[in-house]
Write a protein that binds this DNA or RNA. Structure first.
Length: 683
DNA sequence: AGAGCGCTTCGCCAACGTAC
DNA sequence: GTACGTTGGCGAAGCGCTCT
């Protein structure tokens, strides 16, 4: 809504609330529409309008006035001598209808009439006056003593006189604005679109001006409660309003500089004390609210502080005092209700919410770093998998899994970290892990803490060769970097990791396809880039904070290319050979294998020689009645002893009971069967 | 001229967002 | 899941304006 429309929309509201400040009849001299007007109040256009209004009237059967009579109706021109002097200057005009042929002569008429009469003084217009305004304002409001102010200005605007007066009084309850024009309440606000300005106060319409002066009382222009409540009276007397038709009035007043300036002036005079005091109170108010907000903030904690404060309790609650292992997410759910009431309100005025990733990725690690002791039993969900060659074992890279993982002896001597999980099927099919005795970590992007703990262990406590495979883009490079060097989250971490690439130059030399991507962040600051890499990764700026860059992804290679690439790089980087343990281990392995295999061999031949399968079948048949029937009772008994067992276990146990009970006779029968078999001459 | 106040600037930190 | 750049709010410090 424009300022104009805004002002306009207030007009009706204002009009409704206005009351006349005068009561007719009254004792004051006042200008009435029926009073003679002065020639000085007209401009040419206004006089033309008046003259031809008379001419039109004559056409419809009215009197076609003599010019002389018309002139004498004006203020200061009623004497016959002055009228003669005016008419003499227009010898061709007898009656007003004569202007029909000579429209231009109206200007001459106006000039002559103005020349022969004095401009009327504003005093002739009269004013409501100080005492009357005081009595009215005090009658209508509960006012504060010694706060009444009154100001009057007289003047002329291009010869048209005016009197403006205004009064104000401090009230106990918010007051009103009373507006009068020529001793009458105006239809609308005649100043609605009039710009009023005095000193640093300004505004459209009286209400707007008063609002800026912090003495607003009407509708949307009402000042806030902490301002000085007041009532204002404004009165303007001027024939100007008689000449302005309603449609034109509001806009036209902007032309009346003297009048509007005087109006703004008297308004300023009667409101500047209110203004000052309101401003003073406003400052206090602002200070108070600021102090209150500050107090509020002090009373409430930041999210971080609140989380740190409740973490011990949340931990106890979530883990049952350390009884159970609990994921970071579960701990988060324990923290959430506890910080209620500790943290303040967010920007939207609602209680601030704790974001899971903020909690788990920022606050929880920082808390543990600050307190220098990890929260017992809290683990992060695994992400990524380590696959051992030969054994087929898979290790999920989670906190707990890595903690309990023991490197298998003489099984592999290399670990490859691969940024892309999708590469695993290719590596698996190519049997790279087995051919190089190399475990493969298939991950997604940045390594988890667990993955890096594993690497640290493999590098320092054991002596594995570590490799990383990544995209030829800034983030791939950074992933490789964070696998080697410490980060905020893992201070002190330092592991030798061999970078297999993808290196940008190599990728381009291989003729791999590049692709473009949009970067909306700075490059990771720790990267050391070659000129070529800088050209590709810095890219071209396409907007305020976006760059168009190029990269090569691992996926740009075909599967055979990938395999060939990895093998080539492993050779080039001096990958260790296959795992071969020392002599002692070799012979102990051989002994173990020998013993194991011999045992198997003997077992098998004993079974065959004695015909054990036949003996077993015969005994099964013979002791068939040992199979228990009271199975449901047995299950009930077992469950009663230990509810964690299964029905299968209960049945098995019952069968064993029966076997144990009759083991002597069983043993005897087995013994007899074997003896029979041994004495059998067929062996 | 000095006190008091408010505005601007700067650095810090919590929190968020974007990238993998 | 992790890394780290960006944002936004706050307080401290410094400066300048206003008022007395």
């Amino acid at each position: 809504m424009s300022r104009f429309e805004h002002a306009q929309s207030e007009v009706l509201e204002i009009a409704d609330s206005y009351q006349s400040v005068t009561a007719f009849p009254s004792e004051w001299r006042k200008y009435l529409p029926s009073d003679a007007t002065s020639a000085h109040w007209y401009d040419e256009a206004a006089l033309v309008k008046l003259v031809f209004h008379e001419v039109a009237h004559a056409r419809r059967g009215g009197v076609d006035k003599l010019l002389r009579d018309f002139v004498r109706e004006f203020k200061g021109l009623s004497s016959t001598q002055k009228a003669k002097a005016v008419t003499d200057s227009l010898p061709h005009i007898k009656r007003l209808s004569d202007f029909d042929e000579r429209r231009d002569d109206v200007a001459a008429l106006l000039a002559a009439m103005q020349a022969h009469s004095d401009p009327p003084k504003p005093d002739t217009l009269g004013a409501v006056g100080r005492e009357y305004m005081r009595s009215r304002l005090e009658a209508w409001h509960d006012t504060m003593p010694d706060t009444f102010e009154y100001e009057r200005r007289k003047g002329a605007d291009g010869g048209v006189p005016f009197v403006v007066e205004a009064a104000s009084v401090w009230t106990r309850k918010p007051g009103e604005v009373y507006m009068g024009v020529n001793f009458s309440p105006p239809f609308g606000d005649p100043f609605a679109e009039t710009y009023l300005e005095c000193k640093d106060i300004n505004g459209y319409s009286v209400a707007g001006f008063l609002y800026t002066a912090r003495a607003g009382t009407v509708g949307r222009y009402r000042s806030p409660d902490y301002h000085v409540p007041c009532a204002i009276a404004v009165h303007v007397t001027s024939p100007v309003f008689a000449f302005l038709d309603r449609a034109k009035s509001r806009v036209s007043l902007n032309q009346h500089r003297e009048l509007t300036a005087a109006l703004a002036n008297v308004l300023w005079s009667v409101t500047h004390r209110i203004h000052k005091e309101s401003k003073r109170r406003e400052k206090g108010k602002v200070r108070d609210t600021r102090a209150a907000a500050k107090q509020e903030r002090k009373a409430s904690l930041t999210m971080k502080a609140a989380v740190f404060e409740v973490l011990p309790a949340a931990w106890s609650h979530a883990t049952g005092n350390g009884q159970y292992p609990v994921s970071a997410r579960n701990l988060y759910y324990a923290v959430r209700p506890l910080i209620q009431g500790l943290v303040g309100q967010g920007k939207d005025g609602n209680q601030q919410e704790l974001d899971y990733s903020y909690f788990s990725q920022t606050l929880l690690p920082r808390y543990q770093a600050d307190t220098r002791k990890p929260l017992e039993g809290i683990y992060y969900e695994p992400r990524g998998t380590l696959r051992e060659p030969h054994t087929g074992a898979e290790v999920l890279l989670g906190t707990r899994e890595v903690e309990t993982y023991d490197f298998p002896e003489y099984t592999y001597n290399k670990i490859l970290y691969c940024e892309k999980q999708g590469l695993w099927p290719i590596l698996s099919a190519a049997r790279i892990a087995e051919r190089y005795d190399m475990a493969v970590v298939a991950a997604q992007g940045y390594a988890t803490e667990a993955a890096r703990v594993l690497f640290e262990k493999a590098d320092t406590r054991e002596s594995y060769q570590l490799f990383v495979l990544h995209d030829a883009d800034p983030f791939g490079y950074n992933i490789a970097l964070t696998l080697t060097e410490e980060t905020q989250r893992m201070p002190g971490y330092q592991v030798d990791v061999i970078d297999l690439g993808l290196n940008l130059k190599e990728a381009l030399d291989m003729g791999l396809q590049t692709e473009t991507f949009t970067r909306e962040k700075k490059l990771p600051s720790r990267l050391q880039l070659s000129d070529l890499e800088r050209e590709y990764f810095v890219g071209k700026r396409i907007s305020e904070k976006a760059w168009r860059c190029r990269r090569v992804e691992l996926n740009a290679m075909t599967a055979p290319q990938t395999v060939e690439y990895i093998e080539r790089k492993l050779e080039a980087e001096g990958a260790l050979g296959k795992v071969i343990p020392p002599d002692r281990r070799l012979s102990s392995e051989a002994q173990q294998a020998f013993a194991g295999m011999l045992d198997e061999y003997v077992d098998e031949w004993v079974v065959r020689l004695l015909g054990l399968e036949g003996i077993k079948a015969a005994l099964r048949d013979e002791f068939r009645d040992m199979i228990p029937r009271d199975l449901r009772t047995a299950i009930d008994t077992t469950f009663g002893e230990d509810v964690s067992r299964s029905w299968r276990a209960a049945v098995g146990e019952r069968v064993r009971q029966e076997l144990d009970r009759r083991q002597d006779s069983l043993k005897a029968r087995v013994r007899q069967s074997i003896l029979d078999a041994v004495t059998d001459t067929r062996i």
